[in-house]
Design a protein around this nucleic acid. Structure first.
Lengths: 302, 302
DNA sequence: CTGAAAGCGCTTACAG
DNA sequence: CTGAAAGCGCTTACAG
């Protein structure tokens, strides 16, 4: 039968059974290894359960995201996993996908989601606790002047990480200096270019909690250009634990988010809801773990 | 009508029309930014033409690749774009997908493909010409002792790049020293660890053509550990132009392969064949371009 | 228990 | 030109 070249037509079966064996996966930025790993994890877990992944990429554009969702909806997926573009509006998403297709949102919250009865599951990282842990560790190493470096202050993840940072400082009885919260485009190049902003005050910080690994790696390059030595006379932490973090110079202390495992988890959560629509809305916030490497030396003696 | 929550059912339409609006994309390694960018390019170009991407990832396992292809085939895609796992067998692939679904193979050739009448298009990089150009440039900078560093010698792309390297040396009348062709796992960490192999001979090389950017970035770290200074007293070239190459220390001279553009091109080629099955087999070899950065200084004076 | 018929949501070919 | 019927490849509910 297989010799005759017969292949089962699952789309016909799905039509008759009124079920779907596909899940749509919409990613904001595939060229970021964090999201690429997440996608790989989703695809892996879906495959195990007999589902096939319909891929869409929004390239951080809410307009493209709408188009992509509309196009994917025409294939009637069993559910949607959405890692939203920056500043995605909940009403917008609802218009594109309706209220009948299970939705799992990853990583950042949608804007204005509480107003309507539009319901979806959420999977995200514990950004606040993670940044708090990183900051607390720097304080334990003797640093007293610690900056928060990089990211867009309006983005939800940056806001949360800044909160964790101030949590830790306040718990240690240290005043927060707003000049030490420095905003940059969350990318290596821009982070590298703004390193001098850290040394605008006297005394200057001896350590920086960075928005993410890309920013931290960029900052380390910028520090070297300024004749500072990350890992020796300046401490730097990141967030994400991308593959580059472990082989940086020096290797980067960071918060591990395990994106591939998050992808598998997202697939599990979505399929649970697809099979049991009566489940209450769930919001899963995953703890992140401190990975200590050589980029965080003790504070210099005063 | 849209207000009523109606969404067009394209799968039903496809069933009736006996056409498909999906294309399967199977990727060997999504966590490699080169392939993630390629996937993003494919998805972008397919979306423009009204197709949806069915994603599959093989994680470099031929066994998983077979499963993934079989599962995707049940959705009767209009065609398949395959970036094969290492050592993929043509007969294996044919068994999984049959001879009626258009196939485009990207990046590496399948093993044993010429025997049967199994037909597919191919899109790859001009590895040989690229490595030749990199080597020729190092020679023009005055280097006379140039190594080829990294990669698995059996892989088709490594073989081709080594050929380009020897081409350039022979054209310059320089003998190839087999001790200067050094094999490593094609990853940063392993490349970093083997740097000392470059200095096993006396005199030692003053420059290295690396298998790819990951290897080159790893080698630069390894050189520093050995108190050598890439970009000052040693020259290094890469291959791929991944985002990290431009912001390395020093920025890396490399061959630009533009993976996102390759993805778009792959989608175009496949859709052409899907619409015009009578086309003859095509093999498109894309030239790569030298991007010169600071990692390639002149040879030191003897 | 077996087998022929109806139906999923569309499109197409055909009758009026 | 319009509208009802047949059919894509499956599954399911129903008749024998």
């Amino acid at each position: 039968m297989h010799r005759q070249g017969y292949v089962y037509n699952r789309t016909a079966a799905n039509l008759r059974q009124r079920v779907s064996s596909t899940v749509a996966l919409v990613i904001n930025d595939l060229s970021n290894p964090f999201f690429a790993e997440f996608a790989a994890g989703v695809d892996e877990a879906l495959g195990v359960k007999g589902y096939v992944t319909l891929l869409g990429s929004s390239n951080e554009s809410p307009a493209r995201q709408r188009q992509v969702l509309a196009s994917l909806m025409e294939h009637h997926p069993a559910g949607i996993i959405l890692s939203p573009a920056e500043a995605s509006d909940a009403a917008d998403i609802e218009l594109a996908i309706g209220r009948h297709t299970p939705l799992l949102v990853f990583n950042r919250e949608l804007i204005g989601s509480t107003a309507t009865g539009f319901d979806y599951d959420f999977l995200g990282l514990d950004n606040r606790a993670g940044a708090r842990a990183a900051t607390t560790r720097l304080l334990a190493l003797g640093h007293r002047r610690v900056a928060f470096y990089g990211g867009h202050a309006e983005s939800s993840s940056c806001r949360e990480r800044r909160l964790g940072y101030t949590d830790a400082l306040q718990a240690a009885g240290i005043a927060v200096d707003p000049r030490w919260m420095i905003e940059t485009v969350p990318a290596r190049l821009e982070a590298s270019a703004h390193a001098d902003a850290l040394f605008a005050t006297d005394p200057a910080p001896t350590a920086a909690v960075c928005y993410n690994d890309a920013v931290a790696l960029g900052l380390m390059l910028g520090l070297i250009r300024l004749d500072r030595h990350p890992g020796t006379d300046f401490a730097v932490t990141g967030f994400d634990d991308i593959p580059e973090a472990a082989v940086g110079m020096p290797p980067l202390t960071t918060m591990c988010a395990a994106p591939r495992a998050r992808g598998r988890q997202a697939a599990e959560l979505l399929l649970q809801r697809a099979t049991t629509p009566s489940l209450p809305r769930r919001s899963v916030i995953v703890p992140v773990q401190l990975i200590e490497r050589e980029s965080t030396p003790h504070a210099p003696h005063p």
